[in-house]
Design a protein around this nucleic acid. Sequence first.
DNA 1: GTTTATCATCACAAAATGTAATCAATTTTT
DNA 2: AAAAATTGATTACATTTTGTGATGATAAAC
Lengths: 289, 289
Amino acid sequence: MINPIWLRSFCTLVELGHFTRTAERLHMTQSGVSQHVRKLEEQLDTQLLVREGKQFSLTDAGQTLYQQGGGILQALQQLQQAVRQDPPFAGVVRVTSPGSMGLKLYADLLDLQQQHPQLVLDYRFTSNSGVEQAIAQLDSDIGLMTRQPTLSEVHSHKVGQESLLLVTPVQSPSLTWASLTQLGFIDHPDGAHHASLLLGANYPEFEYSEPLSTRGFSNQISQILEPVSRGLGFTVLPAYAVDAFTRPELIKVHALSVPVSEPIYLCYRRKSALPQRVLSVIDVIKTLL
Amino acid sequence: MINPIWLRSFCTLVELGHFTRTAERLHMTQSGVSQHVRKLEEQLDTQLLVREGKQFSLTDAGQTLYQQGGGILQALQQLQQAVRQDPPFAGVVRVTSPGSMGLKLYADLLDLQQQHPQLVLDYRFTSNSGVEQAIAQLDSDIGLMTRQPTLSEVHSHKVGQESLLLVTPVQSPSLTWASLTQLGFIDHPDGAHHASLLLGANYPEFEYSEPLSTRGFSNQISQILEPVSRGLGFTVLPAYAVDAFTRPELIKVHALSVPVSEPIYLCYRRKSALPQRVLSVIDVIKTLL
DNA sequence: GTTTATCATCACAAAATGTAATCAATTTTT
DNA sequence: AAAAATTGATTACATTTTGTGATGATAAAC
């Protein structure tokens, strides 16, 4: 009986044309891929690949095996999906998002997890491109991004938006450009980007002035407002991150005359049939954003 | 990924409704079958069988898995057939037949093997029902029988016949019924059957007389003519067995007035796609009989 | 010509698989 | 009813398979 694990390695290899990349895709070592192919060839007593230096081409047998085998593998997967019991609120769901909206989502999803003790949430914070990668590599079930993904494997649609807000200490001076530059900027991973969006739209001076003087930086999204609350500077943050700050009385949030917001895209892997628990969480996320 | 070995155990179990018989069919132990099913259920986190004492029925999931899974297994098998290199004269071919025609065939097939050094013949002698069983249980690729098989898995068609011959010592007396009974019978596994066929058709006395007095027995087909050649008795043998005797000058073969012969049926497993080497040997056998 | 990237091979640790022995239960025989 | 025989589940263990890391060889890139 053909070993479907070996077959999968072979089919992936044919698609990628590259042992090392196949290994990465399948979360195994290059040595493993090499051996899988060799064992397939041994078992079938048939050469599948014609090795040409570091390239290879397919023999007729290899061609057949790839075409037919791919279909069978899919059928096996689908069968597993069809038969496996698939409860809507049990099992692991892996969510990845940038920090800002994560602060809100994570709390809300923990509520959900408390309602469904069988549900296990694996929530990871990372950059937009990290989200995209995680989805494409099957490392995450659901992703949230503030831009559309570029990889073709990743499906996305807009599910909401988050306003960018100017945040200053409570006892802040006026909101003139001069006072802001004097107060100084508290930076964070998306700080420059957010600042240019919001400030550029509201302060004509922004475009021509010096870069903002940075008075601090944190990549821990929940910590960014701490220096602001102590009067050390101002920042520009998505609303969800502001909402999550524990001492709102120490900061002041300003509605500027030209509101700016970033879209939020919900992403998951195209084609791969999603288990019920992932669909459930997607539904919940949509109601939250 | 669903393990196709486990799946095969499960599908066979569903068909046979019986763990122990499934184990026999698949050449494994009952314990193994039991574990395969359990592991499938564990992996899919789904009950497949509802155990009812020693019986069982299928859950919905089990039903689906059986139906879809069976198809996938077949597809896998066929793919393997299609891809596996399948030389016409290399590999093991297992032939099973009763002794008589085996004596001729085995020699001829050894000739074939000498012409094709890659070919390996596994020739086993057994009874008609043994042949049938061996085919049905996939223990043999080709079988030869002198009656039609009864098992539905076994396909057969007539490829020839072998004459039954009366064999006496060279210096035998007349062929009257009286002299034969006085000479005595050398028996072998099919002896009684063959004798009744041939003698019953040629000696009206046969039906009413005492059972033949037996002067010897051998289940080694090539040895049966030894006691005959020494004058110890006569026997009735298929022609192929007589032809194989090394000292033909010591025996006398008699053409009786009513010739009797047994049909020869060539058998192989229905449906299972035969590898090229088996087809080759089948062709050769047909030319030999 | 040197460096880097890529694939094959090998030795070994970890994991899986299959079996025999045993147990528990059900069915059949006496 | 009791005894015997079947049948499937479970367990312990030996064997086999599998995947990895290390190493080496060869092709591509610089």
